[in-house]
Design a protein around this nucleic acid. Sequence first.
DNA 1: GATGCCTCTGACAACGTTGTCAATACGCAC
DNA 2: GTGCGTATTGACAACGTTGTCAGAGGCATC
Lengths: 358, 358
Amino acid sequence: MAQRIQRQTPVNRPTIKDVARRANVSLKTVSRVINSEASVREDTRERVQRAIDELNYAPDQAARNLRSASSHAIGLVYDNPNPYYVISVQNGVLAACHDQGYGLQIHPCDSSVPDLADELCDLVRRTRLAGLVLAPPMSERMELIRYLADNGIKFVRIISAAEDPDDGYPCVYVDDRDAAYDITEHLIQLGHQRIGFLWGGAEHRSSPERFKGYESALKDYDIPLDKKLVIPGDYSFDDGFRGARRLFALRDRPTAIFGSNDEIAAGVLAAAKANSIDVPYELSIAGFEDSPFSKQSWPALTTAKQATEDIARHAALRLIAELKPSTSGAAPVNRGFSPQLVIRDSTARVGLKARKND
Amino acid sequence: MAQRIQRQTPVNRPTIKDVARRANVSLKTVSRVINSEASVREDTRERVQRAIDELNYAPDQAARNLRSASSHAIGLVYDNPNPYYVISVQNGVLAACHDQGYGLQIHPCDSSVPDLADELCDLVRRTRLAGLVLAPPMSERMELIRYLADNGIKFVRIISAAEDPDDGYPCVYVDDRDAAYDITEHLIQLGHQRIGFLWGGAEHRSSPERFKGYESALKDYDIPLDKKLVIPGDYSFDDGFRGARRLFALRDRPTAIFGSNDEIAAGVLAAAKANSIDVPYELSIAGFEDSPFSKQSWPALTTAKQATEDIARHAALRLIAELKPSTSGAAPVNRGFSPQLVIRDSTARVGLKARKND
DNA sequence: GATGCCTCTGACAACGTTGTCAATACGCAC
DNA sequence: GTGCGTATTGACAACGTTGTCAGAGGCATC
């Protein structure tokens, strides 16, 4: 029965006490060094640091969190069916946390539940989170944002906006409009005049932003907006598939379709194949996001590359900077990102025919 | 400047003390109720529970972790480039944690760094994790497993194996071999005799397992194994693409290709399209995993569906059960899962020709 | 030489919970 | 009624850290 021996003490971790004894200083001084507080003499700091290194000491997060009002952990709140997006955001935030010695609590949630605000407050209280990084669509629901702020919860939003909203709540913003303009312009410059547009989810602010970019590019090139070419939907493959079929059924078919994200574009691609429509020669397709999928489909998708990981990292850094006003005077500012056009094989000059034997 | 008012106390959370006062019992009794310990009289328990409900009390995790040796949080360790897989695992583990009132610390890592073992030990110590759920390939490196066990770290592995390894270390195992057999058999029954096999990453035990399934199905149907049809590689789109091209270059081409996962199969699909090979009529393709991608490619991929979320959930439940021997007597046991064959459109009877106008 | 004002350091309590151990109450057999 | 075992409860310390506040020492000024 007694196969493996259970160690009584699983390698006693050194505590601040051990460090203090070794460096011959008080607990508090060690604490000061750990938190890089000012007013520790240089030689003392070095001595303590040496002791820390020698003992391979690392502060106990639980104790830390318990004692100090602001714990050293933040939460990441998201509700997104797209694993590529979520993983990118996680990795970005995690990188920032690692950098700054913070912990991360992931919190996938359902943005449609009525008491989401309370759920988040509870989360913060229960796990003593110092703040939250909010991804869309939670980040764009102002009543939620205000509720959190009113309850003293710190956060940074990742949102879709053409410019700094400057509404008093911190954010990192992504210029979807501009990127959607670029994609539409690219299609226009390939000679397309009838360009279909498939909307993303209405609860995401990025959807109208992307539509605005599409609209404004058409306007700049004097192409009238044909409402029949604009189809509502969700950020999903299935809606892309269905939307494309509706467009194919039109008397005057579009020669290009702009799907609001890569999933939608993938759905369009599948619909095109199901209808034996040759992409890109009979139909150009563009997506948005630069998910790995967009590189691996056939043909590979023209899209807009969001630096999601970077964006998320900056959101987390912005939050952490906000949390500790100690670090120098520079107040953290909102920051914008612009997705970049990535041209691949799913878009071609209108009317160009495929060569046989490619 | 003073735009928003900072609440002094961000809504004082009720503590165990408040509950005790309200229920007119001692702190310890409340603690007992919270942890559903035995020997609390039924009416006392009810009274305390009522107070808890009324105050909307929830235990402070930081304090809890600090005090008790076994914190109420576990870690999830993974190193997998596939976001679908990772998100599924996360969601499964998270569901179990939520169920059992545990916290989760995600820990993506690089399985190739030399001091991974120490990294994990540090992680556990620093954040006082009660245990770890280990995903492949970390879960399959025995020297790592032994090191963790020797350091008193509890864990449950998710591994690939045809049966309970029963090596003394707890696990949840997935029968890749059996599922790979089913896929190969499916291809054979469609009349295929020359079936290419593209290996996954050698550091994953699932790779040889899947190969064994392939091998053993061929054997059972008296089809000789042609080594030229077996190509080493990684669990990646690019290796699928390259591997397929090598197979296409053979004098005696395979009529079907079994890619060790969906990414590989997607690469094969792309290579087939690049070579104008009609799938499934000139070439059948099968993958493994049932990632969303496999449904959305064209044609949709025949594959094996892993209940990844379920598997992960059980791994976490197994771990948590191990952590608290309190809950009744039944000792937790290892458990197996078998992926299920999912037949879609990328496989067809050999020699069958496409009808025009589908 | 006294005073004030820095800079640096340490003693101590406190955060919210649980483990230990003792105390009380109750039931039952003698 | 006494003794004993079991069920239930509570007092108290402890977990490892940081905030508060006070003290020690050095230096410049009067």
